[in-house]
Design a protein around this nucleic acid. Structure first.
Length: 923
RNA sequence: GCGCCUGUGGCGAAAUUGGUAGACGCGCUAGACUUAGGAUCUAGUAACGCAAGUUGUGUAGGUUCGAGUCCUAUCAGGCGCACCA
């Protein structure tokens, strides 16, 4: 009987569906385990073979854990809001919901063919009202909260209001970005609108005037992680810096906890490192520099307090609030011209130019330690968003200050012995201080490290500053000027102030619009909706939430997906707690994985969830790249040149569909039929063939190198696809899809199948397995068990191949051996395992079979061989009967005896037995 | 510039964590079988050499009886952050 994978796979997929095999419920009698994949955005292109890589790895783990007696939650869903569906809608007028649902249907079909053990009853879609109700709900909780820096957690905003009524802002422990102070009387005298505006400085979800990344081409603002090198990550359009009034999330309040708690989770070092960089912890000092002829002082941040004696000028960011206070009338024109110039440059232009620019403000500041007057400049190399937007410049020991000083011919005072600052600055935090003592502070002779500590102490004592920790992490910009996203549960009152909807009004459903474009007056698409008002008749917010809103808490929703009264019930949360294993790509390191952690911590502060971290262990699967093929067209002709002849002509490289190419040889007729453009193409061949060029690139529709998993399933079966993807290499590694290797895995399954049958008869019998068969299978049990725990699936597949070869060679027919083999194989190749499970006459499904245990006794050798080395060189072998821990002692005695014989009776100096069957003798 | 990771056959990769480097698969070579297939089976396959043997884990040192593995330096590739004070 042949291995008919198509029939088997269809049959068992149907069986699993009919019997709800993968449905899971809370079961207090079993320990839980939560295995999660990052849910996909359902794009129009469908799945390619790269997508399932992580899904297969997690599926294996989920099935394995289930067989080890765990109650495993393994759900799947869709991140359904996204730009492509919206842009398609703008182009065609088709509602993005229709496109999205079509794509979801396709994804589901593709996923089902691969045989994952998802509990589809728990599927979530971020664009469904029943789901986004809870996205909106979480937003409302954030709107109604502030961050208490003393308790280090979120608290109701009402508590802050009560505090303001009694004490004003004095001594208030609330995280804020604004430097405002007011008394209780002032607070109580404010109008409602004024109070509402003031509270925006404290709310965790707030409407703020912030510098945003504005992408004119996309017509929307973007979060920092959606921008790379001044271009939008999606689309690659230029991004400008612009002050706009936008919804933001006070992620920065959580910077410390986001950083600290990284130590409590099992993530790869590289992704933790990426998050650490993104959060950007930096310990330094804030210092006050009095402005000459003014009562105002400049507050600056520095990590190099020790260099205070080398400060020769100050610099303000162009957007700094201090600018207005320091510009003198004489310098007004020059400053305005500079500010105007800076404003019209995009961030990308600023980065590319890297030219030193700036302008003198006209004012001077007083160095609080030396008492010297130093000029205040304005320059865009100082960023408004970091620290205080103002710095003390130490050109001798900071390369940026150095460049600025050289350009404006400002003095440079070296502070470290032996540092040569004639050509460049000396930035290292290393060396002995000099030029750094006066009657107030003496740093000369100290190491830099000690000088920093001493200066910090001094400035605190002298009252000119304080020790301060700064984070680079900024608040997340949370509104988008788009249609296809969650509406905000916010209306605007008579004063134009945003107010929360009542929770009973949730979900606030996305309204219908006639077009998916901004309005003629430049408002977001929701401005087109008719009757877009709250229950009280007031107008609703027109922005929608960004992509990461819906994906920030989806792992919680899977725990209790149909609950209409809570995001997740207490019972479900306390049972499932957190994701034990999360599998997904590294591209979300600074986006989703930060936002989710933030969101979870916020919910944790109120006790809505019981774990401070959402994802205990994270595995990042690599990308599967495509292998693209190229043809070479001679410029301005319709003639194509074979790869090795292309250098004789002036050619253009063109991607060609890999389905038209076999072993880099182009099927020229198929190529002509591919597109009307090529119907009359002519070819310059080599040896009668057209050879294509190739490259390893990202798998993408536009490069015509996409391999569809459906085709592989059709030709080789889902089990082969699963085994093959695991066999390619470590899950974490990126690797190109190489269709050649698949034959080996396919052959392995056929060979395994062949062991069960003689002709059409099942040939296995109930007999006692031989010692060597037991050894072979127990070796496999041990290997596979350990490999799965370590995600080393590629070596597991190799071990299966070895075992099957051994069983085949020894003609093993004992059912009990194959029963264990089938159970071991079932996480990797569930369909064939299920079929063979029933061929063996077993009941139930193999998913519920208990995972076998290995017995070390079967693995022991009867005789242990030792190689005796003299000073590392092999001399002779000895054999010791195996059995107990005694064999090492025996080996030592035997080796000693043997060595003495070899050395003509001379005793060896030392005999070392190492546990891997080698005895080393020192002579 | 700062930080992190990775360097092993023709290729994807293993190596029980310091103990016979290259498991397993692809590819390749030779052969067998056959109703000629997108087959299957057997043997071989790190390099050099007819051999015994020698050399081999990016490079150079070091520790050790013994190093792919540990230490130091260096080179190459990948990723992240980047006028972040």
């Amino acid at each position: 009987m042949d291995y008919n994978f198509n029939e088997i796979e269809k049959k068992w997929q149907q069986y699993w569906k009919d019997n709800n095999t993968y449905k899971v419920d809370i079961d207090e009698s079993k320990p839980k385990f939560y295995v999660l994949d990052m849910f996909p955005y359902p794009s129009g292109a469908g799945l390619h073979v790269g997508h399932p890589l992580g899904y297969i790895a997690s599926d294996i783990y989920a099935r394995y854990k289930r067989q080890r007696g765990f109650n495993v939650l393994h759900p799947m869903g869709y991140d359904a809001y996204g730009l492509p569906a919206e842009q398609y809608a703008i182009k065609t007028g088709q509602h993005p919901e229709i496109t999205t649902n079509q794509n979801i249907k396709r994804y589901r079909e593709q996923l089902e063919k691969i045989g994952f053990c998802y509990d589809w009853d728990r599927e979530v879609r971020t664009c469904e009202p029943g789901y986004y109700k809870w996205t909106q709900w979480a937003f409302l909780q954030m709107f109604k909260s502030y961050y208490n820096t003393e308790l280090d957690k979120a608290r109701p905003i009402d508590e802050l209001v009560a505090y303001f009524e009694k004490n004003g802002s004095e001594g208030c422990n609330a995280h804020t970005s604004a430097n405002v102070e007011f008394t209780a009387d002032e607070w109580n005298a404010m109008t409602n609108a004024e109070r509402s505006q003031m509270l925006m400085n404290y709310r965790i979800a707030y409407l703020g005037n912030t510098m945003v990344n504005w992408c004119p081409k996309l017509g929307t603002v973007l979060a920092n992680d959606e921008v790379s090198e001044g271009l939008s990550v999606r689309g690659g359009y230029p991004v400008e810096q612009k002050v706009m009034r936008q919804w933001c999330l006070r992620v920065s309040a959580y910077a410390g906890r986001l950083l600290r708690d990284l130590d409590t989770i099992e993530w790869s070092e590289s992704i933790k490192e990426t998050q650490k960089n993104w959060i950007g912890y930096s310990e330094g000092a804030e210092m006050l520099f009095p402005i000459v002829g003014s009562d105002e002082q400049l507050l600056i941040f520095t990590t190099r307090a020790d260099t205070i004696f080398g400060v020769t000028f100050m610099v303000l960011a162009p957007e700094s609030e201090y600018v207005e206070q320091v510009v003198t009338p004489e310098q007004r024109a020059a400053v305005d011209a500079y500010l105007d110039e800076v404003k019209h440059k995009t961030e990308r232009e600023r980065m590319i130019e890297k030219k030193v620019s700036g302008v003198f403000s006209g004012s001077y500041a007083l160095n609080p330690v030396t008492g010297k007057e130093i000029p205040i400049y304005i320059s865009d190399y100082v960023l408004a968003g970091y620290g205080t937007g103002a710095i003390m410049a130490v050109p001798a020991h900071d390369s940026r200050d150095y460049a600025f000083a050289r350009h404006f011919d400002l003095p440079i005072i070296p502070l470290i012995e032996g540092a040569d600052v004639s050509e460049e600055s000396f930035d290292a935090k290393d060396g002995i201080m000099m030029n750094s003592s006066n009657e107030r502070l003496q740093l000369n002779g100290l190491q830099v490290k000690d000088a920093i500590a001493k200066t910090k102490e001094y400035i605190a004592e002298a009252g000119i500053g304080k020790v301060k920790v700064n984070y680079r992490l900024r608040d997340a910009i949370f509104s988008r000027q788009r249609y296809w996203g969650e509406p905000f549960p916010i209306y605007y009152d008579e004063d134009g102030q945003p107010q929360p909807l009542d929770e009973s009004e949730l979900p606030l459903q996305l309204p219908e619009v006639d077009k998916f474009l901004p309005t003629e007056t430049g408002e977001p698409p929701l401005g087109r909706a008719k009757n877009w008002v709250a229950a009280n008749g007031r107008p609703l917010e027109l922005n929608t939430m960004p992509g990461f809103a819906g994906s920030s808490a989806y792992y919680l929703r899977y725990m209790d997906p149909h609950n209409d009264n809570a995001l997740v019930s207490k019972e479900a949360d306390e049972y499932w707690r957190q994701v034990d294993l999360y599998v997904g790509g590294t591209e979300h390191a600074t986006g989703h994985l930060i936002y989710s952690r933030f969101w979870n911590k916020f919910l944790y502060d109120y006790g809505y969830v019981c774990e401070p971290e959402p994802f205990r262990k994270l595995v990042n699967q690599g990308m599967i790249q495509g292998r693209s093929n190229f043809v070479y067209r001679i410029k301005d002709t319709n003639t194509f040149v074979s790869y090795n002849l292309k250098n004789d002509y002036d050619t253009t490289q063109i991607h060609v569909d890999i389905n038209l190419v076999e072993n880099d040889i182009l099927d020229v007729e198929a190529f002509k039929a591919w597109s009307p453009e090529y119907a009359n193409a002519e070819f310059v061949l080599e040896n009668g063939k057209y050879i294509c060029g190739w490259a390893i690139e990202k798998m993408s529709k536009s490069m015509y190198n996409v391999v569809n998993p459906d085709d592989i399933v059709e030709r080789f079966g889902a089990d082969t696809l699963r085994l093959y993807e695991m066999f390619l290499g470590p899950v974490e590694a990126s690797k190109p899809w190489d269709p050649n290797n698949i034959g080996g895995v396919s052959r392995f399954l056929k060979r395994l199948w062949g062991l069960f049958f003689k002709g059409d008869e099942m040939q296995l019998v109930d007999e006692k397995p031989s010692a060597e068969a037991l050894k072979s299978i127990h070796k496999l049990i041990k290997k596979v068990t350990q490999d799965i725990e370590q995600f080393s699936y590629n070596t597991s597949v190799a071990a299966f191949m070895i075992c099957v070869n051994e069983l085949s060679t020894m003609k093993c027919k004992a059912k009990s051996v194959y029963r264990d083999l089938v159970v071991l194989l079932s996480p990797f190749a569930p369909h064939i395992a299920e079929e063979l499970w029933h061929v063996l006459g077993e009941q139930g499904t193999v998913c519920d079979a208990q995972w076998p245990q290995w017995n070390e006794d079967y693995l022991k050798e009867s005789v242990v061989k030792y190689t005796v080395l003299f000073n590392g060189k092999p001399r002779f072998n000895i054999e010791v009967p195996a059995g107990t821990a005694q064999d090492e002692v025996q080996a030592q005695a035997l080796a000693h005896e043997g060595a003495a014989r070899w050395l003509d009776g001379k005793q060896p100096k030392k005999v070392i037995v190492v546990p891997n069957k080698i005895v080393n003798v020192v002579v």
